[in-house]
C-alpha cells in the first residue's frame, strides 16, 4: 500500500471548483513535486493531503506513522524562542527533557542554526533563519512523511540549495515520503522522483513526468537542459511560466 493515497479528491471554494477528481499515490521514500501555475490549487491539494482541509469529495488514505508540514511562511510562535518553537511540537512525543534538548540540538545543527540562534525570538532572526527553524521543527518530530509548501522560496540561492540537500537528503535517508509544492521547475527537477503537474483550470491533474536518476545526485546542467526541453517541447508544461495565474471561469 502507498504511504499516501488521494482518491477522487475534489474541492471547491465558494462554488468555484479548484480541484476536480484528483487521484495520486505517493510511496514511502518517494519525493513527489507538485507544480502548476499560481492559483491552480497546489497548496490546497497539499493542505487536503496533510489533513488541514477537508475535501468536498473523495478521501485521503494515510499509511504512515507521523507527518510534518513546512509551510510557505515559517509559522513560528512569536513569543517563544527558536528552541521553544521546536520543542512545542515535540512535547507530546514520549521524549523526556534531556531527550528533547538533544533532539533540538541535533536538528538545529542540521540546518546550521547555532546554539545562540536557538535562544533568540523569531523577531530577532532573519527571514531565512526563521524558515530554517521551521524546517528544523519538521525534522525534529522524525516524520515518516513531510509536506513542503514552497518551503525554500524565502531563502537565497546558495542557502536554498544547501537546505534542499540537507532536508530532503535527511528525509530520503530515513525513507520518508515527501510531497512538495513548488513553482520552480529546477527545484522540482533536482529534488523529485516524480513531477505532477496540476491543470490550470481546476480540472485536476494534467499529467506527470518521472525523472530518471536519484534526487540530489543529478547533474545541475542536465537538470537545466531537461527543464528547458520541457518548457519548449512538452505540451504538459506549455503556459506554465507565461500564465498570469489561473484564468477566470
Amino acid at each position: 500500500m502507498s504511504a499516501l493515497s488521494l482518491v477522487g479528491v475534489k474541492h471547491a471554494y465558494f462554488g468555484q471548483t479548484v480541484l476536480d477528481d484528483v487521484s495520486l499515490s505517493i510511496e514511502a521514500g518517494e519525493c513527489v513535486a507538485l507544480v502548476g501555475p499560481s492559483g491552480a490549487g497546489k497548496s490546497t491539494l497539499l493542505h487536503i493531503a496533510a489533513g488541514l482541509v477537508t475535501p468536498s469529495e473523495g478521501r485521503v488514505e494515510r499509511a504512515y506513522g507521523r507527518h510534518a508540514v513546512v509551510f510557505q511562511d515559517p509559522r513560528l510562535l512569536d513569543w517563544k524562542t527558536a528552541a521553544e518553537n521546536i520543542a512545542y511540537v515535540l512535547r507530546h512525543r514520549d521524549l523526556n527533557r534531556s531527550g528533547r534538548v538533544e533532539r533540538i540540538a541535533e536538528v538545529a545543527s542540521l540546518v546550521d542554526l547555532s546554539v545562540e540562534d536557538l535562544t533568540k525570538f523569531p523577531v530577532e532572526l532573519s527571514g531565512g533563519m526563521r524558515q530554517r527553524v521551521a524546517i528544523a521543527r519538521a525534522l525534529a518530530v522524525k516524520p515518516d512523511f513531510v509536506f513542503f509548501d514552497e518551503p525554500f522560496s524565502a531563502l537565497d540561492v546558495g542557502l536554498r540549495l544547501r537546505m534542499q540537500d540537507l532536508a530532503v537528503g535527511a528525509l530520503l535517508e530515513r525513507g520518508a515520503g515527501m510531497m512538495f509544492v513548488t513553482h520552480d521547475l529546477m527545484e522540482a527537477a533536482r529534488l523529485a522522483h516524480r513531477l505532477v503537474v496540476l491543470d490550470a483550470d481546476g480540472r485536476g491533474l494534467a499529467g506527470e513526468r518521472r525523472l530518471e536518476g536519484e534526487p540530489l545526485q543529478r547533474d545541475i546542467a542536465l537538470c537545466f537542459a531537461r527543464v528547458q526541453d520541457w518548457l519548449v517541447n512538452d505540451p504538459l508544461f506549455a503556459g506554465l511560466n507565461d500564465s498570469h495565474g489561473r484564468r477566470a471561469q
Binding site: H47, L52, R66, F71, D73, L77, Y88, V89, R91, H92
Partner: peptide, 16 residues
C-alpha cells in the same frame, strides 16, 4: 489561525 493549522498539522491536541 495559521498557527492553529500548524499545530494541528503536527498533531498538537485541542487543549494545548
Amino acid at each position: 489561525r495559521r498557527l492553529d493549522d500548524m499545530a494541528r498539522a503536527f498533531g498538537v491536541g485541542p487543549a494545548r
